[in-house]
Simulated scan of single mutants.
Amino acid sequence: MRIVNFVIDGVTRFGVLRDESVIDPLRAAAAEERAWFADTVSFIRAGAPARQALDKIVSQSDAKANLKLRDVKLTAPMMPSTILCSGSNYRAHNAEKANTAISGKEPEFFIKTSDCVIGPDDAILYDAALSKKIDCETELAVVIGKAGRHIPVERALEHVFGYTIVNDVTARDRQVRMKDGFVWYELGRSKAFETSAPLGPCITTADEIGDPQALMLKTRINGELRQSSTTAEMIWSCAELIHFFSVNFTLKPGMMIITGTPAGTAWSTDAELGGKWSPTPGLVPATRYCQPGDVIESEVEKIGILRNTVAASR
């Protein structure tokens, strides 16, 4: 099942994407079920009864609940309460950039907030006062469905509701600090800012994803293939990251974990910031960082394509 949020008549609604249609369960739900479909987090928290009710609505294909996809605007499929982020989680990405002393030895832990989130086709703002080196990173995002603390790795995937795509937009000139041969990262201003977390276009439920370590990821910028890899190349698996973050927090429905990006970033061609581009068959090296007018496509197998355009900040 593919969960979406959409706007119709100026109101944001929860729905299910199926082919070229969006199913609006509020139009077919019984009165006692309507609270479950108020938004994505309410649906996740409601658990099995809500899923059973939604399965029934979808299977019946009630005409009054079906909307044409072209008649609605998709937004971010949820507004996560917290986005827990793991950097430096692909070996090939670590090989292409300047690294800190802990790169690839433990997950780089930083946080984005809901203030960073935008949806499909929304604009990534280019604000020269913040950064002139805006880079994009396609990442698999894990949506937590069941609460837990100190979750063992072998039980971790039981806590997953589904998976979506996040573009971890990064201000590289705010991130990378270098002095006397020593490198460190500033992961506050470089990672958490307005429009730095495009999210969507849908959440594919865990039952349809299967193994999250067997998914292809791709990034295209203006049609050029910049990233192409598989989640099998992660250093720490989704299950291991769930365990890792659950040591710090009780993971709750509505939280999200993003899992790092593979090689092919613009950083790799930026020698000034320690970039080390390595030719890869099929991939086009960046000649610059993102600029207004660029179209970014972040694709993950079984989820879809998240498309955003860079626009100048006013």
Rank of each mutant, 00 (worst) to 15 (best):
S42I: 04
L26T: 12
A65V: 14
S61T: 07
E32I: 15
I203F: 08
R27I: 08
D173W: 05
A46N: 10
L217H: 08
I305Y: 09
A28Q: 07
S114W: 02
K191M: 02
S298W: 01
V169H: 01
I118D: 02
G10N: 11
A123L: 10
T261C: 14
T250L: 13
G87R: 11
P262F: 07
S313L: 02
C116T: 13
C290L: 15
R155N: 10
T75N: 06
L215T: 03
V247R: 09
E158I: 14
I144D: 06
L199A: 12
R91L: 15
H159Y: 04
R2Y: 01
A65L: 12
L225G: 05
N5D: 01
S103D: 14
R314M: 04
Q291P: 01
A129I: 00
L54W: 02
D55C: 08
G264S: 05
K252A: 05
W277N: 09
I305N: 13
G162C: 14
L26I: 14
N99Y: 07
I303W: 12
C85F: 15
V166C: 12
E301D: 14
G104E: 09
G304W: 03
D127C: 11
I23S: 02
A28V: 15
E194Y: 00
K276D: 08
G87V: 11
L187I: 13
G162I: 14
G254Q: 02
R189K: 09
P253T: 00
G87K: 13
L283Q: 07
E272N: 06
K179P: 00
I165C: 05
E272I: 08
F37R: 10
Y289Q: 12
E20I: 07
S114N: 03
M1E: 04
T164P: 03
A35T: 14
Q52D: 15
R189G: 02
S103P: 03
P25V: 04
F6I: 08
T100A: 13
S246Y: 08
T230G: 08
D9N: 13
D270K: 04
E224Y: 01
I23K: 03
R34N: 04
R45C: 07
S21Y: 15
D55L: 15
A95H: 04
R220D: 00
D135Q: 11
P201Y: 00
L125R: 09
P201T: 00
A101C: 05
M234F: 08
K179Y: 01
A129M: 01
L74R: 11
C85I: 15
F161P: 06
W236S: 01
A192M: 01
M256R: 02
L199F: 03
S61C: 07
D9W: 14
T269Q: 15
H159Q: 04
K179I: 03
L84I: 13
I3T: 02
G254E: 05
L157E: 10
L17H: 01
G260Q: 03
F109Y: 09
M1D: 01
V160E: 12
F245N: 04
T259W: 07
G162A: 12
A98G: 06
M216P: 00
I242G: 07
K302H: 09
E208Y: 06
N94R: 10
L215P: 01
V300Q: 04
T204F: 06
A271V: 13
L125P: 09
D39Y: 13
I118M: 06
Y126K: 15
Y289V: 08
I305P: 01
R70D: 14
L140M: 12
I83S: 10
G10D: 07
G254F: 05
T287G: 04
T100I: 15
S61R: 15
